[in-house]
Design a protein around this nucleic acid. Structure first.
Lengths: 228, 228
DNA sequence: GATATCTATATGTATATACATATTATGTAT
DNA sequence: ATACATAATATGTATATACATATAGATATC
């Protein structure tokens, strides 16, 4: 009972980081480890599955378990929910919508959201404020076929992001991170200089076969996103 | 046998995304789900643990399982291994070391690596090339107490990153992402203009109680990192 | 020598059972 | 009412067992 799947996982992790099993090398089979630690194979199995999930080892049927060649290149991040980040820092969050227009989808938006020429989209530009200081600038396009109700949402109180999460149920999505120089639009919104380097998050969400929204977030200069 | 922990997990995931169980609401207990799907509780347990790991649901003893308030804000990323990224794109990778000097740790490096005034560090600046075109610029500081052997490493063939991973065993680390304007140094290295917005990754790794290396990677303009 | 076929093996998975543990809900005493 | 002890309960975990499945390595075939 001294050994749980967690203590065993930690022990194996330590043996790897200590160099006992270097990157690329094979480690003992579950059976042997379970005997060594005096537990059931299922317990070792769970510990090793966790390590594989963390990217520390790679497992293959019949071939066994080996230490990953690059054991540290997996990370998990929390995509920032702006309101929560701001409030966690003890500040007051407020979204300020500066553009709110319905129009026929421009070409690049048609591509992003897989729309036809006549489909209507909602275009939103929002400044996210922390204690009334600009924190991030959001450029969002919403497919009105997928979320018609959003035109009546109180977007001065709740962000479009949160509204969509709760009203259009949950949606699958893709995310990418990058950097871009502030154009005049972002510089004005974030109260910074033209050309400043901004950390950006681009996100697209969909539900079943329908794209719901495409959004780019531009963060104030100096913003960093941390992984664990 | 029709139901595995995976098919059950997908089914529950779908019921959440379809809106049957909205964010914040509670879902049936494992016992009931196992009866509904005609399987053992352990199978449902594994499915739900996976969903919790993905951030889609939150579980608490006695209190049950409920859909997360923000079900989509967890993501996993692979921290790019530059050589592999370049080679995956079908190009030839080559690291080019432009600065390689041993010196007493400057103040900001002492802070990063927790060193004393007299400790020596290796300072490396490297241009990572894809088909001889600059791809990323690396600014690295290595604690020579922790990795003395690196002074003899063939850093024109293997990157310091890879050398450290294999020679100093595996090390724990922290990562953060951001953006910065290219200074003359980075602009020259990456063959771009002064002030261009560069996506950056800052990483610090340690082993037991000792910091090993601190590194900042500056990516060529336009680079994006994708999450799953 | 190359190719196809078989076989042994390590991991992958499902199940029933038993007990642990955190936390809510209930009940009791003040 | 309030504070505190108690019971009920959903998840957390470990175990033995059984069978599935991918695949490395051996063997046979062309």
């Amino acid at each position: 009972m001294a050994h749980t799947h967690e203590t065993i996982g930690q022990a194996i992790r330590k043996r790897i980081t200590r160099g006992e099993w270097p990157p690329g090398s094979i480690i003992p089979r579950e059976q042997d480890l379970s005997e060594e630690y005096g537990c059931a194979r299922a317990t070792v199995n769970r510990a090793l599955r966790k390590l594989a999930d963390d990217g520390l080892v790679e497992r293959k049927r019949r071939a066994g378990t080996r230490v990953a060649e690059f054991p540290a290149h997996h990370a998990r991040i929390k995509i920032p929910i702006l309101r929560l980040e701001v409030e966690a820092a003890g500040a007051v969050y407020r979204p300020q919508v500066t553009v709110n227009e319905i129009l026929k989808a421009p070409l690049f938006v048609r591509g992003l959201l897989h729309l036809n020429k006549l489909d209507k989209v909602l275009h939103l530009e929002t400044i996210h404020l922390a204690n009334d200081k600009p924190f991030a600038f959001e450029d969002r396009w919403v497919n009105l076929n997928a979320a018609p109700g959003i035109v009546d949402a109180p977007l001065d109180r709740i962000s479009a992001n949160e509204w969509l999460i709760h009203e259009v149920a949950f949606s699958d999505g893709s995310v990418s991170f990058g950097a871009s120089n502030a154009t005049k639009r972002e510089a004005d919104a974030l109260y910074t200089e033209d050309g400043a380097a901004l950390f950006t998050i681009k996100r697209r969400t969909w539900k079943a076969d329908q794209y719901i929204t495409a959004v780019t977030l531009y963060f104030r200069p100096g913003y960093e996103m941390h992984a664990t």
